[in-house]
Design a protein around this nucleic acid. Sequence first.
RNA 1: GUCCUCAUCGUCUAGAGGCCUAGGACAUCGCCCUUUCACGGCGACGACCGGGGUUCGAAUCCCCGUGGGGACGCCA
Length: 534
Amino acid sequence: MSVRLRFAPSPTGNVHIGNIRAAIFNWLYARHCGGTFLLRIEDTDLERSTPEAIRTLKEVMEWLGLNYDEPEMYQTSQKDKHLEAAERLVAQGDAYRHAKGGAGGEAVLFRLPWDAEAVPGVAVAGTVEVNLATACTVTVDETGVEFTSAASVSEKTGQGRVEKKCLAGFKDLEVLDENGALLFRLNDAIADVLAGKRREIIGGAAKFRFTQRTVTYRDLVKGELTKPLNSLSDFVIVRSDGSPVFHLGNVVDDVTQGITHIVRGDDHVENTYRHIFLFHALGAAVPQYAHLPMIVNAQGKPYSKRDGDAYVGDFRTKGFLPHALFNYLALLGWSPGDDREKMTREELVAAFSLDRVKSSAAQMDIRKLTDLNGQYIAGLPPAEFASSARGRAEAQPWGARLDAAEFSRVCGLMQIRAKTFADVEGWGFFFTDIPVYDEKACEKLLRDKPVQAALEMFVGDVEKLPADELRAATVEAIIQGITAACGIQQGKLNQPLRVAVTGTTVGAGIYETVEVLGKARTLARLAHVKRFYA
RNA sequence: GUCCUCAUCGUCUAGAGGCCUAGGACAUCGCCCUUUCACGGCGACGACCGGGGUUCGAAUCCCCGUGGGGACGCCA
């Protein structure tokens, strides 16, 4: 059977790095298996969903090459189906209506099945006893069991937390008083309770005794995960205003789209236990689950507004290549098991597997991404590099009218040195008349008298030269002659010359740089820098 | 607070009881190449969270502790 996966973001705000990493893993696994990858936009939160968010989401996916195989599904378009499913659940007795302080009418709640053993993965763990807070009042009705456990009572305040858990969590429940006397036995009343005909309020309770049941599923990355039913509650699937909630929409859509594998952030693990019961009640097979660890920021904390939420589009703005980002993100929390890092998309698809995904959180390291990006840039065909670089350059004040031949010469010098396309913004010294000078570097390199004399000699030599003979080799020869004549140490004139003609201490080879600059600009800049000779 | 979960260099990771004197990559530092800037090459620095167990043998298995994260919504 062919696998079907989906990426199901909610379009509230910008897609961040963690979301898109989940999309990448879904895509990779679908492609690896030769299966289907789908996009579902979970826009049921009308308050926070925006058209801009949907637009940027699709833009980013296209940029990264995350193509999907069927038209995207908008969750809001499935509303009728969701409501229909809710009706069916109510009719089956798997859900019930209840007014719980929400706005207006009754909401629909999904009931964790009393007959839970019918669901694969549910097991009896044994008889357990839970101590309750002193003089605890226990309420039992169709919506669950309400109580305050002794464990939840704070030592400081003496206050406990009132918990409301599902009926299914308390099979064979017996409520006992402090002397161990039986106050209430659930089995005696269960039929009426489930039918909503009976509500029991028990005062002076001290202890619960019940048969504990657990749900277990095998997560493709985290292994076997188990949760006791008595820590689960019935949950709202249709709001009192009639709109379906995430849990319902998500599961119904997964059924509708025939999803076989759910790969998502591990903030969803707790939902999984509930969704398993929903799938079962809907008569559908439970998909395979793979929960991805989260990505944290440089401080080791989850991404927040302060980090700008690591919006994916920002990486594009910062001059990263989509393949590099894709490659880097694929390596966050996953590795092929050998030492490969720079991998083509085909290699990633071939090597990808969910069981090699790590189960601990990973920290995003922009420096490693930058290095990888540099490798990708170095591997670009020169023409492609030049055309991307040109786009960047044209946005600069000095980039309005660039000579194509000159620009491509500069690209030839700079491609191997560029880590991101944002580096292009520092190329201004190639194209302006007088560049921006690094004053500190000038102070350091141009204050030396012998150096100044040597630069003067350089000016003299260049002036004598026809403009079209100022080649890199010529420049090198001139420098060699001068250092020999002045008794300046070999190589000691290069950096002063560099800062004098480019304003900076880093760049391309200085001889090639002077050649590209040409006679006029070189001389103008050397004259400009005389202010440091005082 | 309760439940769940995670833990190898600063960071990403390899590691399935003996191949581990713990491997690779980024970052950092040094050397070489280069009369310069880079690239590249070579090298250095640098980790199994702590404590108990199991075993002839533990980074690896078990327990406890500590620390991190997640979940406990009519958000998704």
